[in-house]
């Protein structure tokens, strides 16, 4: 498939200084960033994006998905967001977009919703199974145990990342295809597989935009690759069916 391993394939070093890349991120105008706005701290993601000069769009209905090139799934209560994904008929269209290669990043509850398997959730809780990890909800304990820690993410060159964990999930199993970018106390807290990035902590609760920048750059690169392949594909007269797997925003 066209978009497989989009994020994983790009070797970005990450900025060492926060805020460097606002102008470099080709996201504005080219790439519309969606933030899932069913419940949770979508506002904080939008604030940190706008501080870098990136405008974003809240996604509540399936029509909204047609207008975005990548998606951030924020923190919140995964049981609530799960119910609202179904109530607003977003589950299938969102799953299809992710399968088709749309870059997506889930923080905390967003990570739970993207996982292959969820433990400690409601029995009827839905999840997208977009990344091969098993997560356990609230695994660090109740709110009194929520914490901040300084995290080194050497795999992508990000020292001292201020990581805020709020009733966070823990990754208890990661499949072979999953790239573990950072660990805390021996457990993965930042992972990616193909076009899916997940973190059990909340970069949006800080003013450090390095991970947001990385996600946007990779998403933009991903779109470039898809656009390139699309034009090649067009030359080779690809069936319309295949082309329709691409995010609509890449078809311009």
């Amino acid at each position: 498939m066209v978009a497989d391993s989009c994020l994983a394939g790009s070797h970005l070093t990450g900025n060492t200084a926060a805020g460097v890349s606002a102008a470099e991120v080709p996201a504005t105008g080219v790439l519309t960033v969606g933030v899932l706005g069913l419940q949770g701290d979508a506002r904080r993601h939008q604030d940190i994006l706008s501080a870098s000069g990136v405008t974003s769009k809240r996604v509540r209905q399936s029509e909204d998905l047609e207008q975005i090139g990548c998606l951030i799934m924020p923190g919140g209560e995964s049981t609530t967001i799960s119910m609202m994904l179904e109530a607003n008929d977003l589950l299938q269209p969102l799953a299809a977009k992710i399968r088709a290669g749309m870059p997506v990043w889930g923080t905390c509850a967003g990570m739970i919703l993207l996982a292959r398997e969820v433990r400690g959730g409601r029995d009827d809780q839905v999840h997208l199974a977009a990344i091969d990890i098993v997560v356990e909800r609230n695994a660090y304990g109740r709110q009194i145990s929520s914490f901040e820690a300084s995290l080194d993410i050497p795999t992508i060159g990000m020292p001292d990342f201020p990581a805020v964990f709020i009733r966070s999930p823990v990754v208890i199993e990661a499949g072979e295809e999953v790239e573990v970018l950072a660990e805390f106390r021996g457990q993965p807290v930042l992972c990616r597989q193909d076009n899916v990035l997940v973190s059990s902590f909340h970069p949006e609760l800080t003013s450090d935009n390095r991970l947001h920048d990385m996600f946007l750059k990779e998403a933009a690169k991903c779109l470039d690759i898809q656009n390139g392949q699309l034009s090649n594909a067009a030359k080779e007269l690809t069936t319309p069916n295949e082309a329709s797997f691409l995010p609509s925003s890449s078809v311009r």
């Binding site: 979508a42 506002r43 904080r44 919140g76 609760l205």
Partner: peptide, 20 residues
């Protein structure tokens, strides 16, 4: 270096409840 009970952590849970 792990710190619990900071204002950021406390306000963080309030922010997770937004829209709910």
């Amino acid at each position: 270096i792990v710190t619990t009970g900071t204002f950021r952590v406390k306000r963080g849970l309030a922010e997770m409840l937004e829209g709910g």
